[in-house]
Design a protein around this nucleic acid. Sequence first.
DNA 1: GTAATATGTTTGTCTAAACGAACATTATAG
DNA 2: CTATAATGTTCGTTTAGACAAACATATTAC
Lengths: 254, 254
Amino acid sequence: MTADAYALSDSMENYLEAILLLIRESPVARAKDISRHLKVNRSSVTGALQALSERGLVNYEPYSFVTLTQQGTEIATSVLQRHEALRDFFVNVLAIDGAEADEAACRMEHGISKSIVDRLISFAAFVEVCPRAGNKWIRGLGYQCQEAALSSEKCERCVSQCLQDVKSNSKKRNQETMSTKLSELKPGEKGQIEKVAGAGAIKRRITDMGVIKGSLIEVVRVAPMGDPMDVRIKGYHLSLRKIEAADITVNKVE
Amino acid sequence: MTADAYALSDSMENYLEAILLLIRESPVARAKDISRHLKVNRSSVTGALQALSERGLVNYEPYSFVTLTQQGTEIATSVLQRHEALRDFFVNVLAIDGAEADEAACRMEHGISKSIVDRLISFAAFVEVCPRAGNKWIRGLGYQCQEAALSSEKCERCVSQCLQDVKSNSKKRNQETMSTKLSELKPGEKGQIEKVAGAGAIKRRITDMGVIKGSLIEVVRVAPMGDPMDVRIKGYHLSLRKIEAADITVNKVE
DNA sequence: GTAATATGTTTGTCTAAACGAACATTATAG
DNA sequence: CTATAATGTTCGTTTAGACAAACATATTAC
């Protein structure tokens, strides 16, 4: 065991995360970009890259571009997942402004444990999928009730109203929604996974992420010609080819 | 402006928090205790105390006991509030184990903003008060639905069931609960604030915390003879004399 | 292809935070 | 009231992380 696997510092996690984000946008991460992204001096980037390289997390040669190793990718992915779990929760459940949510997620993403992330994701997904009615459900309960001083009558009225919303909305939904292929969705649209057909590779990649029937999947970006498409699932990002996406059946949400 | 009010480091926040906790248990905080509490070398404590003293946050004389200044108390209180908001949310909403929740809260408490803390508190209080039925409400929805793959029929059944629970439970509650004095509650019991009567000092102390009718208040500890009693409200701690507590009318919860 | 510019690296410096060992003070046992 | 133990402090070191200035290498413009 040459490069020991001791816990990374917050700072190093941030570098990995930044590199992953940059690689995702352009195929290559340059020190300049990392430096700008993290608002840090160029020389600090060099230092960090050397440290990360020693630990076997990035491939680094002086004066050349940076890529992540297998292990580095795993860590960076996990950091990003934590970040997005927090961000999504803040935005979708607590109704916090996007920029502020991002900032807080940045500061909190390092100390959060796997099990909390998982529950946060389940919970936020639930809020997004289950209630319908424009996500007003939990919010309505949480905030309106609070404002109404939590008096029990108001609370009940609130719950009743919400139940109505859920029912009428789900009737509507049952009429108009039907299973569709993931490849049909446009950027920003979401669906619940109904079935993953197709060959082994993608199926495994997806099921490895703990995805079950009903998990929420969101289309982030679609390249011209619809190939490839970037999706987000359980806080992970994934790039799928069109044929692969066609093998995934979803129920469109929203 | 002698001692400038620049942001404290995480480490310094931790020292302040530890001091506040220690003072709360025994009237005095000794370096040894801080050192044990934070698992840090004794000499590091001295260093931290000197730094905090320079910033006017603790009263520090070599070889003597430590107390917090006004400003130090404010900061420590806010750190602790953040900690408890996170912890409560993890435990009560996400159903995370207490020890793990505490640990994570410790690591995340420094980066969380005021507005997020506030919403987290509202949200957790809502979950605790509104649903009744042993807090199974949100959990039931969040986790059962998730496990049931979020299929919409199951989800609805779930919501219906929960609504039933809320209704029957609140009927029961309306029969058996009635307004009572805060001073009647035993440690561990909670109530929603109905009215704060009495003189100016405590009323102000409480209302300054943003407490409104309906806010949740929990009795933490009661001294022999019921005087004083420690309570927790909106993540803040408060020590009330028996006469003061008698002026606060609450609706018992649970 | 060379000059000018942009980008990356090295070096030396700084700060915060921690540690251990040696020393100072206070508390306690007898 | 001393001797000993417990606690607190100082000092010297270490480490991680950041910065700026000077230097090195790429890139681009002409």
